[in-house]
Simulated scan of single mutants.
Amino acid sequence: MIAPGKPIYVELPIRTNMEALWMHTQSPKLHREWDLRFSDIEYLPRRDGEARQRFLYRTRIGFGLSVSGTGVSRSYPAGPGEERLSTLRFGSEQPISLIREGGGYWRYKPEADGIVFITRYDYRTRFGEPGVLFDRLLFRPLFGWATAWSFDALRIWLERRIPPAATIRLALVHYISLLLLASLWFCQGLVPKLLFPDSGDAALLAATGWFPAGAERSWTAALGIAEIALAGLLLARHRDKRSYALQSLLLVVLTGAALIARPGLLSEPFGPLTLGAAMLGLGLVAAWTAGDLPSARRCRRHPRAR
């Protein structure tokens, strides 16, 4: 029998006041702005004297499909400077929903320079052991990452006044630029230098006069490996602007060497100058958008030891 996954836990300190954090998490209109897990949240009217808040939620999963469900929350606001708590039960009757039912809480813990925002929740799945296995291997890690990423998007909203919609657009621009840039470095290292060195790159290195005669192929292969390694560095250190400075320097050196060795390359429509300028532009865009990206790694993912 496959054991179910551990409960999802996320903790993040946010430099804000209690009222602002409470409003941005308890208002459905504001909540759905920053939380990747929900496309829509709608509160249902409360009955007379009812302390609990019933609500409907919906999450788009692509291809025109969505998963909807119902939930019940209860808030426990406290006085100034005291910890607050909000509990939650949720579930879905849709057959396509992996989550059958679950529950958890939000804690708001005041500290000297802000509020520590904490959540812990768990759920039961459908589809028997295949559902448990799919949840443990893929869905639960992705759901936990989405929770942590959303918490950091909320932090950026409250601390830096950047709305989540703008943050998401910046993230899309950053990752598209990054993937294109890394792909170009990888292809430039693999195809003309490792797979087809006789296509012209070895001859171009020989024309620079920087390398001993007869060693051009070895240096071409070494340069190809270095360019592939640079692609990996950009992906691994994409938040570090020094990575983009390094790739820009290498671009200038390689493009300049190619044009000095063969000035006729300037007349080619897709020559080194055109490619180098495009890669330099992608690097500038990726570096410019790297500063305010949410990161799930900023969150603590396990409870503190007592």
Rank of each mutant, 00 (worst) to 15 (best):
W185H: 13
G214T: 08
S150Y: 06
A203I: 07
W149S: 10
F127Q: 01
R161H: 15
G214K: 04
F127A: 11
P164K: 04
K109V: 15
L233C: 08
G128K: 08
I118M: 05
G200F: 12
A148T: 10
D122V: 03
Y123K: 02
T167V: 14
L233K: 08
S150E: 07
F186S: 11
S218L: 12
L158F: 06
L179C: 12
K193D: 05
L154S: 03
F117V: 01
R217C: 00
T147P: 00
A215L: 12
P197H: 09
L98D: 04
I118L: 11
I168N: 11
T167K: 03
L142K: 13
L204N: 08
W157K: 07
L137I: 13
G224Q: 04
D198E: 15
W219P: 00
P130W: 06
A236Q: 06
V191P: 05
W157P: 00
L179M: 13
L184P: 01
C187Q: 13
D113M: 04
A229Q: 01
T208F: 08
R124C: 01
V173D: 07
I225S: 04
Q188T: 12
G128L: 11
A165T: 14
T125W: 02
L235Y: 04
P197L: 08
A112I: 08
L230M: 13
R100C: 04
A112R: 13
W106M: 07
L230R: 00
A171Q: 15
E216Q: 11
G224E: 02
D201Y: 05
L138P: 00
I99K: 02
S177T: 11
W219A: 02
D198S: 15
I115N: 09
A215P: 00
L235V: 14
